[in-house]
Design a protein around this nucleic acid. Structure first.
Lengths: 189, 189
DNA sequence: GTCTATAGTGGGATAGAC
DNA sequence: GTCTATCCCACTATAGAC
């Protein structure tokens, strides 16, 4: 499509390759081949291989940060906020699974200053999530177990959902949201 | 100092580096530096960089397979079997977190025939786990939700526990087992 | 068993023609 | 904007001295 910039196409193709083999194992020649062009031609659109990674990861990290801020401004209960966060992660998984793979696995290959920025954003996100859980515990909505175990259990499931979602193929998003909320909040027993 | 123990040292140091940056981003010079020797000297102990990865991943995959077979032979209920599997994963996380990182993230860089072998082992492991969940559902011990969502939720939490366990450090293993079982089986509400 | 030296390959990136 | 040609460097791995 003519409105899709060539640079976006490159970033999109590259992200698919990064998801399969990881950033370090993908060469600019691989990306060029996927674009059906020569490696040198890529450099009319991008500054470096690393720039692609920066765009993928930092744009997505901002989506998570924005989503968290919206949830924090809701008037709902902590439990409803956690439901909203589960839905946020599922929406991102469905729409941006390749960038999610890069964010999870390849953030340490960002330029040094962006590693610092990324880690700060991630820690802030986790801290906000943790505070919602603690609020739920103090209101008696959530069982008073280690908040850290609860936080980790929910986040690790949501963060790796991208590995599993497409293997199971196009499960209806709303069914997935309902089942994930049920399993993560109310358990399986 | 025998050649065999030197080889184990190399594999151990390499696994730490693989965990930090991923297999592809670690060079044999990095491994040599961690061993305080020159890269060429490594080759008196190993055949290739890839051999290190093969040993790390396939040895650990066999540990999981053996653990699953032991659980299957227990006379316990499905729920108790799932508890035993949670404990298996936690024990492996505590004792072999570096190899676990390689198994999770770098299996696709194994030689081709070993990729096939690994994927078969992983699928068999998941199938056995799924059958225990289904048995629990049919006995009324486990809620009759999509077994796939339950399987994924538990496995993804256990598989990425290594990322989190040492950051929180010093958490007693038995406390961790008790809390993880509680959260994963009975939820947080 | 470790070293120096180096082979051989492929990496990211640039120059300049068209 | 894409190409061919190429630079320079880092990579895995080997050869052979000690």
């Amino acid at each position: 499509m003519s409105t899709t910039s060539r640079k976006s196409e490159i970033i999109s193709k590259a992200s698919q390759l990064f998801k399969e083999k990881g950033y370090s194992a993908v060469t600019v020649r691989d990306i060029a081949q996927a674009m059906e062009m020569k490696a040198a031609s890529l450099y009319n659109h991008i500054d470096s291989k690393q720039e692609i990674l920066s765009i993928l990861i930092l744009d997505l990290a901002r989506d998570f940060t924005d989503g968290m801020h919206q949830v924090q401004q809701m008037k709902n209960s902590p439990l409803q906020k956690i439901e909203a966060l589960i839905e946020l992660h599922i929406d991102i998984t469905v729409n941006q699974s390749e960038a999610l793979a890069a964010l999870n696995n390849d953030w340490m290959h960002l330029p040094e200053n962006e590693v610092v920025e990324f880690v700060a954003m991630r820690e802030s996100y986790e801290e906000n999530f943790r505070n919602i859980i603690k609020e739920g515990i103090s209101l008696g909505q959530i069982q008073s177990r280690h908040p850290e175990v609860i936080l980790f259990s929910i986040l690790s499931t949501l963060r790796t959902l991208y590995l599993w979602y497409q293997k199971r193929g196009k499960l209806d998003v709303n069914v997935l949201k309902r089942d994930m909320v049920a399993v993560l909040l109310r358990g399986i027993v």
